[in-house]
């Protein structure tokens, strides 16, 4: 796999590469040469099937990571291309002209993460949710439990006592290095 990475390195700048498994190589590229790399991979290498395309929310670094997984069924190997895009205004080039199933991936990512793919045919059309007014739910800063409690509410009548508190109350647990 490494010589294949060299081949890519020759054309595009590979930020990092990690041979996760003998049949899975992961590389990281800059956003600017993501689409050229994918187009090159599709047109003149064995990796022309887009197996999977999704986003990961690295909220601490303020970035989304787009992951394209291309598989070469003849050589029985996969290549995972990871691209970091800015989280504040997340936009990326659409690849639906290379792979038709990318339309659905992009539609879902716009709805779930808010990553816009200008030119993607079905961007903005509801895929999974209907009448959703909150921030895109798959973002890390969306708290689904609080939303569920507030929007739907749970069945009342359940009480829970934390064993730790019950022991502390029953036996008066105090610390002497600090004034509680």
């Amino acid at each position: 796999m490494n010589e294949f990475v060299q081949e890519i390195q020759a054309r595009f700048e590979v930020l990092w590469s990690n041979p996760q498994r003998p049949d899975l190589m992961q590389i990281g590229v800059r956003q600017v040469n993501a689409l050229p790399l994918l187009t090159w991979l599709k047109s003149n290498t064995g990796y022309f099937i887009l197996n999977h395309f999704s986003a990961v929310d690295w909220i601490e670094d303020g970035e989304f990571q787009l992951t394209y997984l291309l598989t070469d069924y003849a050589a029985r190997r996969s290549l995972m291309v990871c691209v970091r895009i800015d989280r504040a205004a997340p936009t990326a080039e659409s690849v639906h002209h290379l792979w038709p199933e990318a339309v659905t991936y992009e539609q879902e990512m716009f709805e779930m993460f808010g990553i816009s793919f200008p030119g993607s045919p079905r961007q903005g059309v509801d895929l999974l949710l209907e009448g959703w007014e909150d921030i895109p739910p798959m973002r890390r800063d969306f708290d689904t439990a609080a939303f569920a409690e507030e929007a739907f509410g749970f069945r009342p009548g359940r009480t829970h006592t934390n064993p730790r508190d019950r022991v502390a109350i029953a036996f008066g647990q105090k610390g002497f290095l600090h004034d509680h």
Binding site: L128, L129, D134, T144, A145, A148, F152, G153, F154
Partner: peptide, 9 residues
């Protein structure tokens, strides 16, 4: 129970 898209009761 903590899903944002399913009703609970």
């Amino acid at each position: 129970w903590d899903s944002y898209s399913t009703i609970k009761i």
